[in-house]
């Protein structure tokens, strides 16, 4: 190999690129979340029914459902500022999704949204979150396979928010914020999927 080629390789090897700050922040958070989930899993499961928590949970769920309903009525063109509770940015996909994948996604988002909104402070969140994360990953693989890279990216972007939900030391406020954000992201996706499904019906 010539000296020039060696020099070229050396220059290329030494060239480094910094990730955007929010990306590096996401990596730090991913480790914090993974550590929090691990701690939570090591802890023995709590048993018993707590009437106070149950009724607080019902109230929080009702308030969230009302808020999300208002969000729906207000329209889907923009994202209200108060929703931006974390640094994770979930992109809205513009691509069309194959019908079979769209049905799977709708089922996943509907079920997950209902389960997430039903969580309260006393719930054992980590098992539920892991089940949702596993489904999320299966659908992400399917989206990648079906040439729907934007959908795959949305599913990947949702994962860190889901993992944060499993953290042990969440305050009631943090839990409610994460529930709201996840429900919002899932609503955006469900609205997009429903619109696509309606367009498909009209064109056939």
């Amino acid at each position: 190999m010539t000296k020039n080629t060696d020099e070229m390789i050396a220059v290329l090897r030494d060239e480094t690129y910094s990730p955007p700050p929010h990306v590096r922040a996401r990596w730090h958070e991913a480790i914090d979340e993974a550590a929090a989930i691990e701690q939570h899993r090591k802890r023995p499961a709590r048993r018993g029914w707590h009437p106070a928590s149950f009724f607080i949970g019902i109230a929080v769920t009702a308030a969230l459902a009302l808020g999300i309903g208002i969000g729906f009525i207000m329209g889907d063109t923009g994202r209200p500022d108060e929703q931006a509770t974390t640094v994770v940015v979930v992109p809205v996909p513009q691509e069309d999704v194959p019908a079979a994948l769209a049905r799977g996604l709708q089922l996943h988002f509907r079920d997950s949204r209902a389960q997430i909104l039903a969580l309260d402070e006393s719930s054992d969140r980590s098992d539920l979150v892991w089940r949702i994360v596993e489904d999320n990953r299966i659908l992400e693989s399917a989206a990648t396979r079906d040439q729907a890279p934007q959908i795959a990216r949305v599913l990947r972007a949702i994962e860190p928010i889901l993992l944060r939900l499993a953290a042990e030391n969440l305050s009631d406020g943090e839990l409610a914020d994460l529930q709201t954000q996840l429900a919002f992201e899932m609503n955006v996706m469900l609205t997009k999927l429903a619109r696509q499904s309606s367009d498909d019906t009209q064109t056939t």
Partner: peptide
């Protein structure tokens, strides 16, 4: 992480894929 991201960027030439690759690697390593 600059080094990891750079290596992934040179392979994928896609900043999003490079960032996701580093995140996957960190979680896998953890």
């Amino acid at each position: 992480s600059d080094r990891w991201y750079s290596a992934c960027l040179k392979i994928t030439r896609d900043p999003d894929l490079a960032a996701d690759a580093v995140q996957d690697a960190l979680l896998s390593a953890w």
